[in-house]
């Protein structure tokens, strides 16, 4: 039984753990088995931070990622710890402004200005949810409505409106990527 491995990587303070938790909830709600782990540096802000998910149809034997199927990178600092773990054929999303030197390899790379999009919506803090929306929309790993329900259930009240808008924006960015195919899509083989 093969697992699906997902990582949100970047810098501490970008809300990566929340993205991971929301997606975890969406998978659990969809009846999947999942485990979400985190690795981080001692600084609360600024060091690298990874929020990882392992999703399985059955019990999750080993709950940590080692061969990543879906990777979201919101900061350059997240590239080094993850680059060697990207599975051939994986889907990788990067923040086009904050990850100037993306990983290179046998996978599909999409880029979009997630953080700038979030700033335009009202706060850079919502970049994690914009990216989450794009990941879900591009990959189809779970229903949009399931992840929206998870956002509604798992977001602190003060950020709920913003996060719902951010998630929607993430969907739209992804849809635009598919439609145009060249806006922000870089395929490197």
């Amino acid at each position: 039984m093969s697992n699906m491995e997902i990582r949100f990587g970047g810098s501490g303070g970008q809300g990566l753990i929340l993205s991971g938790r929301l997606l975890f909830q969406a998978f659990v709600d969809a009846g999947k088995h999942a485990a979400q782990s985190q690795s981080y540096e001692p600084t609360s802000r600024g060091g690298f931070c990874n929020a990882d998910l392992v999703v399985s149809e059955g019990d999750v034997d080993y709950p940590l990622v080692s061969s990543i199927d879906y990777l979201v990178l919101l900061d350059q600092i997240g590239v080094a710890p993850s680059a060697a773990m990207i599975k051939p054929g994986a889907l990788v999303l990067i923040d086009s402004r904050l990850v100037p030197a993306p990983p290179v390899g046998d996978f599909t790379l999409h880029q979009a200005p997630f953080t700038d999009e979030a700033i335009a919506l009202g706060s850079h803090r919502a970049a994690n949810v914009v990216a989450l929306g794009s990941l879900v929309a591009l990959s189809g790993i779970c229903d949009r409505e399931t992840v929206a329900a998870a956002v509604r259930a798992g977001t602190p009240k003060a950020f709920l409106d913003l996060n719902l808008v951010a998630l929607q924006r993430g969907f739209e960015i992804a849809d635009a990527m598919e439609a145009v195919d060249t806006i922000a899509k870089v395929v490197q083989l």
Partner: peptide, 9 residues
């Protein structure tokens, strides 16, 4: 640390 911060149902 892994299990302490691991989220599982």
């Amino acid at each position: 640390q892994v299990i302490s911060h691991l989220l599982e149902p």
